[in-house]
Amino acid sequence: MDITGNTIFIPGATSGIGLALALRLHERGNTVIVGGRRADRLTAIADAHPGIHTVQIDTADADSIQAAARTVLAEHPALNVLVTMAGIMRAEDWRSPDGFLATAEEIVTTNVLGPIRLIAAFVAHLRAQPAATIMTVTSGLAFVPLKATPTYNASKAAIHMLSESLRLQFAGTSISVVELEPPAVRTALMPGQEQDESAMPLDEFADEVMALIETDPEAPEVQVERVKFLRHAEARGDYARVVAALNSTDRHAR
């Protein structure tokens, strides 16, 4: 993915990692469209950052995805990058007889069906572009599980494997598939995570991601240094140690 000269749609970018990257991509000369559920947040972003475009979208709602796709493509026919940023993270206790199913279903709808539906809505358009990118967003927890968030872990592992598979299918086409793999970052993804000293500062994360993309625009995975402890645990042969270390404290890990 080139660092500049793109038209980029980022649903789920009204806060946190999505917004931080949207602002940096806009500053680098890209046309950026931020998507989100709340109209007030979208208005505030557009007012504070002239030149950034917005569209209302609920990535847990199939009809909303289709409507937003029609709007984005009508207003931005040069769109060539889709970043499937939207996601939720919830703690669950599967030992409780009825305390987890609704939460698990909500996570799967947003984190798995959401990206699948987004890609389906844009893929024909992207294939018609001379060069296009689908950027998925997974997590270090796609590779090492956090005890408190089983469905979140599973949802990100699913998107990792989806990314791997789509990269194979789109080989030889104009579409590149890039997987962004965040570690724990100081955002509001989980309660208390914005103040978690063990999580990576948001600006530090976003700056490192931009530097990595600029340095290696052909990289299939974008891994900041902090996520490699989780990402490569199995390959290093210390998976059991990493699982134990990750779950020995109450810290968050995206």
Results as ranks from 00 to 15, higher is better:
M89E: 14
L113G: 05
V83F: 07
D98P: 00
I88S: 12
R127L: 15
R90P: 06
A235N: 08
L162M: 11
A132Y: 05
A235V: 08
G16M: 13
L19F: 06
R70N: 04
D58C: 03
L73T: 05
A68F: 02
T59D: 04
F9N: 03
R127S: 13
R167W: 04
I52K: 03
L79F: 04
P150A: 02
Q66K: 14
P191I: 05
P77G: 05
A235M: 10
W94S: 01
A124I: 09
A219K: 12
T173V: 08
P220F: 01
R28E: 05
I213H: 00
V72D: 06
S165F: 11
K156P: 10
S64R: 00
F122N: 09
S139G: 12
A245L: 10
P50N: 02
H76I: 00
V137W: 00
L189Q: 12
E218D: 11
R90M: 15
K147M: 15
N111Y: 01
I159F: 00
P145Y: 04
A124G: 11
A199Y: 04
I213E: 02
Y239T: 01
A74L: 10
K228Y: 07
G5E: 00
G51E: 03
I107E: 09
M135L: 10
M210N: 07
A124Y: 03
L19E: 01
F143V: 03
S64K: 02
I17F: 03
L212S: 05
I159E: 03
H160S: 02
T31G: 01
L126D: 07
T133S: 08
K147G: 09
S198M: 04
I33N: 07
T149H: 09
D61I: 06
G192Y: 08
L212K: 08
H26D: 07
S176T: 13
E27M: 10
A240W: 09
T149V: 13
R38Y: 10
N111D: 08
A142Q: 05
G36Y: 09
V177Q: 04
T215N: 14
L118M: 12
L126P: 02
N80M: 09
T109L: 14
T14K: 09
P217G: 01
H53R: 14
M200Y: 13
P77S: 10
A244D: 12
Q56S: 14
Q66V: 12
Q66C: 07
T54Y: 09
T14C: 10
L230M: 15
G36N: 03
E204P: 11
A128P: 11
E218A: 15
A158F: 02
Q223R: 15
A46Q: 14
A60W: 08
D207S: 15
A86C: 06
K228E: 12
H49A: 01
I116V: 15
T149F: 13
G16N: 09
